[in-house]
């Protein structure tokens, strides 16, 4: 089922509150995309979900279980994977070590069969990773590192996958590839996806729900269809 509900109050950096209040819900097999221009608070909202920024109040529920007080590193064990922006990887480790390390961190009793299954799934989504297994992650291109970052998040077998602008700075062809992969993750793994994105046109090809942020406040929410048909808001916030 993987129903994920979160609400935030006063998220930001010390005295600076970026998100006064925000609530999101997303179910397994669905993607919620956070839209809005630079500085709208998309990144802050996602970071607040996983406890990377200061937050006045944070409530997280996953399938009814209350994860509000769970420290950041334990969220991965609870099935919440976060892929921060900038295609961050463990640069001094190889592709294989990046994936294996993430698997081992969340699977206490290493089970070779399920590890192999997860590796195969990652290679199936991103075939290039199989060829680059022994390459240091830091020496790969931005697009490859982004694929590795997503593959690494999948190694924890997430119920919720939170992605911060995964396509930023990528060539159009890679953007298309990445969204295609995210679409497959959504439909085949049953995980719920929350993604911040600037590229509305590309994001709506895989997203189900939209939430438009304007200066930290939700300006518009609904299904992709509803948002697409709302002429006035579309022009005002998305410039389309």
């Amino acid at each position: 089922m993987n129903r994920f509900e979160a609400s935030l109050e006063r998220a930001g950096y010390g005295e600076l509150v970026v998100i006064p209040q925000l609530a999101i819900q997303v179910s397994g097999g669905e993607m919620l995309v956070l839209l809005g221009p630079n500085g709208a608070g998309k990144t802050t909202a996602l970071k607040a979900l996983v406890g990377d920024v200061d937050v006045g109040r944070r409530a997280l529920r996953l399938d009814g279980a209350d994860l509000s007080g769970t420290p950041g590193w334990r969220l991965a064990h609870a099935g919440i994977a976060f892929v921060p922006d900038g295609a961050r990887c463990f640069g001094t480790a190889t592709v294989h070590e990046n994936l294996r390390g993430a698997f081992e961190a969340t699977h206490r009793h290493a089970d070779a069969a399920s590890r192999r299954r997860l590796f195969d799934r990652a290679f199936d989504l991103f075939p290039i990773l199989r060829q680059r297994l022994d390459q240091l992650a830091g020496s790969m291109s931005g697009g490859q590192r982004q694929m590795l970052a997503i593959a690494r998040a999948l190694m924890i077998q997430p119920k919720v996958l939170i992605l911060d602008e995964p396509t930023a700075g990528l060539a159009p062809k890679l953007v298309e590839e990445l969204f295609e992969a995210l679409g497959r993750i959504k439909t085949t793994s049953g995980c719920a996806i929350v993604m911040a994105e600037q590229n509305f046109a590309a994001a709506v090809s895989v997203a189900d729900h939209c939430l438009v942020l304007d200066e930290g406040r939700p300006a518009l929410a609904g299904t992709v269809e509803q948002v697409r048909s709302n002429e006035k808001l579309r022009v005002a916030y998305l410039g389309l």
């Binding site: 590193w73 064990h77 463990f90 480790a93 390390g101």
Partner: peptide, 22 residues
């Protein structure tokens, strides 16, 4: 496996925490 976690934690502690490492 602990060595890998040590290298992850020194490379990028925040990212290591997101990977489930204490």
């Amino acid at each position: 496996r602990y060595g890998t976690q040590m290298r992850f934690a020194s490379d990028d502690p925040t990212l290591a925490a997101h990977a489930g490492i204490n």
